[in-house]
Design a protein around this nucleic acid. Structure first.
Lengths: 164, 164
DNA sequence: GTACAATCGTCAGGTTGCCTTGTAAGGTTT
DNA sequence: AAACCTTACAAGGCAACCTGACGATTGTAC
């Protein structure tokens, strides 16, 4: 940092690399999803597709898993209802609550999306070799799941729950 | 995807892992930066600290490096001017333009920030071993800089230019 | 069994981080 | 000097989150 007059080409930090890689994968996924005919699904909606169970799930639980507020997830669910991917059915066990369920179309979209994500990963594996990809996965999993030396404790719940 | 009734614990995709790791590093960095007394610097400001040269830089060039519009970067520069980290001085070579320069305080902040990012990476290296970190870096660099099989071409310019 | 507190979802409104469009001032070209 | 680029800025919009404050239930304590 203090060698030389300044950093002409700024140093690639771990953060910038991780962020760039994330964006790269995300962009690829978005493109594939769009090409598959699901242009109306935005990346934000992923938190619903990712966590919702087939037998339905309450908003509160979904929000908890996604690490977001009920209001925010509620908005996304509104979108997906309008788009016909999910529906809210009254919870038979609690008349306050509603169960958020995937429609048939939603189930299909979920299947396709997870498939495309797996394809992206497969392409990476082709480029870098399956061995390296396994290493990468292991490393990232360890970095994320373990107690990081300095991460804020409240983050740990969210960490696996952010993007689709 | 279609084995078993459904995926109870959703599968960790490459995307979710990368995203989680990014967030983890970012959170750690933010915390460290705050503890170092720079709570007023937001992550978004990183695109200025990251790319600005010591001898100053025009808004247009900065925006180009950051992969953002001039207006967006201009706003961030406004913030940093208010906070005393940068200043706009008239460009002697073009009276339309202004050079965005770090103040002494800004230079110090930049030094500290890059140092803290390096510290985060060192801590990762301690946890996983220097060898694995090198592998991780190499892999990410390759994934990001090479022509990805399916990435949008316009992304490639931006890819290394997003977060601090 | 009635009062009280907690929980479920929603409404209203705000913040952040970006973008697009338009405009005025300063250069460049011929 | 007329036409055309730039440079920066101002105004306004949008997406993706947030907080706070409800009404409608439900579970809990007297």
């Amino acid at each position: 940092m203090s060698d030389g007059p300044h950093t002409p080409h700024p140093p690639e930090t771990l953060l910038s690399l991780l962020d760039a890689a994330t964006e790269s994968v995300l962009a690829e996924f978005r493109r594939d999803l769009e090409e598959a005919g699901y242009a109306d699904i935005r990346p934000t909606h992923g938190c619903v597709f990712r966590f919702v169970r087939d037998d339905g799930m309450r908003l509160t639980e979904l929000a908890g898993l996604a690490g977001m507020t009920k209001q925010s997830v509620g908005e996304l669910v509104d979108d997906l209802v309008d788009l016909g991917y999910v529906e809210r059915i009254p919870d038979p066990e609690d008349r306050r609550a509603k169960l958020i369920c995937l429609t048939d179309r939603g189930i299909e979209a979920q299947r396709v999306a997870f498939g495309l994500l797996a394809d992206v990963e497969d392409r990476w594996a082709e480029r870098f070799g399956a061995t390296r990809m396994k290493q990468l996965r292991k490393l990232l999993e360890a970095a994320v799941s373990e107690d990081a030396p300095g991460a804020a404790p409240e983050l740990r719940e969210r960490r696996l729950a952010s993007v689709s």
